[in-house]
């Protein structure tokens, strides 16, 4: 999966997002920057609550009331989306950027037939279509995600969890967007259906030269579907690089911890070891490197100053003491957590 250098479809510069709560401001996204080329896919990984969904909803400009953007730019094909008016952004949403929400279950309207909801998405954004064309298109999308087209006329409560998730994937693809953000799109799917959908997604993505941001805690899947990978910790992007390189030799100690703690169904059943320590409180994040309270390599500078980026080729990590390029053991795939 060589990464071809092309003009970026998406350029995120120094994005920061806060949520106001009674206890104080949650610093959900802090100075996040990355680029995405046409047809390229970027994985976003990191512990629960580290800000992955917040990055995604900022790109869609679908923020809850208590959120505010503290700075940054989100350029889609050169246009910064953040200053656009609500009317203007509506022209981008779904047609140019589409998202598969993490709460797939919740993003379908319970009182409308599932197929109808997808048809409405198509009609709202592709004026030229007739109803018959739209139905035909929905049937095709349904088949693609492994849903029987006769399910089009049924209601969301008649769908299983995974069926709803697949319907939402079909909806996100319905307008051929330039960029698709998939937030944990396969959490409710068994591995066979998941495998099939990921293959289909890959095909569509490459055919349409669509950019994709793939958020998942499932490192195995991220390894499979992404060209590049970004690791988030406490609202920050702490490592970014070519997926294969990052897997082979992570630079950031957090990335290394994340990757070595993957459970397996193959080989011996080893005891479970989670990452020691607590995830940081984003209302009052630790000074310096946010990972320092849990990092075995932390020293004085780590505790006081946010680390500069260290580079290795195209990859970088925000760490004062990045790990050596020595490859992790070859049999890592047989290791349990």
């Amino acid at each position: 999966m060589a990464t071809v250098r092309e003009a970026p479809v998406l350029e995120v510069v120094d994005l920061s997002l806060r949520y106001q709560t009674r206890q104080g401001e949650v610093q959900a996204v802090e100075g996040v920057s990355f680029e995405l080329a046409q047809g390229q896919s970027l994985g976003l990984v990191g512990e629960s609550g580290c800000g992955k969904t917040s990055v995604a909803t900022s790109l869609m400009r679908l923020l809850p009331e208590n959120a505010y953007l503290a700075g940054g730019q989100v350029k889609l094909g050169g246009t910064d989306l953040l200053p656009l008016s609500d009317d203007e952004i509506r022209g981008y949403r779904w047609r140019r950027i589409a998202m598969v929400f993490q709460a797939a279950m919740n993003s379908l309207d319970p009182v409308h037939r599932v197929g109808q909801q997808v048809i409405e998405a198509i009609e709202a954004h592709r004026m030229e279509t007739t109803l018959a064309d739209a139905r035909e298109r929905v049937a095709r999308l349904f088949r693609m995600v492994g849903l029987d087209p006769q399910l089009m006329d049924r209601y969301p409560h008649e769908f299983s969890g995974g069926m709803r998730q697949r319907a939402v994937i079909a909806m996100a693809l319905s307008c051929d967007p330039d960029l698709i953000i998939a937030d944990e799109p396969t959490t409710a799917l068994d591995v066979i259906v998941q495998d099939r959908i990921l293959r289909e997604l890959k095909v569509v993505q490459q055919e349409l030269r669509m950019g994709m941001i793939y958020i998942s805690h499932d490192i195995g899947v991220v390894a499979e579907v992404t060209d590049r990978i970004g690791v988030m910790y406490a609202g920050r992007l702490v490592e970014l690089g070519d997926t294969a390189d990052v897997f082979r030799s992570p630079m950031h100690p957090y990335t290394a911890a994340l990757m070595s703690s993957f459970p397996s169904v193959h080989g011996e059943r080893l005891p479970l070891v989670g990452l020691a320590g607590e995830p940081p409180n984003l209302i009052d994040p630790p000074a310096g490197c946010p990972f320092h309270p849990r990092c075995p390599y932390a020293d004085d500078i780590c505790r006081t100053e946010f680390p500069d980026r260290s580079f290795r080729g195209d990859n970088w990590a925000a760490c004062w003491h990045p790990l050596d390029a020595s490859p992790l053991s070859e049999d890592r795939q047989n290791q349990d957590f």
């Binding site: 591995v191 490192i219 195995g220 390894a223 897997f247 890592r332």
Partner: peptide, 20 residues
């Protein structure tokens, strides 16, 4: 069909026919 956390690894197509 269980995925493996290694970008060099390609899982085999599961041995199952047809469609859901």
């Amino acid at each position: 069909a269980v995925p493996v956390p290694d970008p060099r690894f390609r899982r085999d197509r599961p041995d199952i026919l047809g469609d859901l």
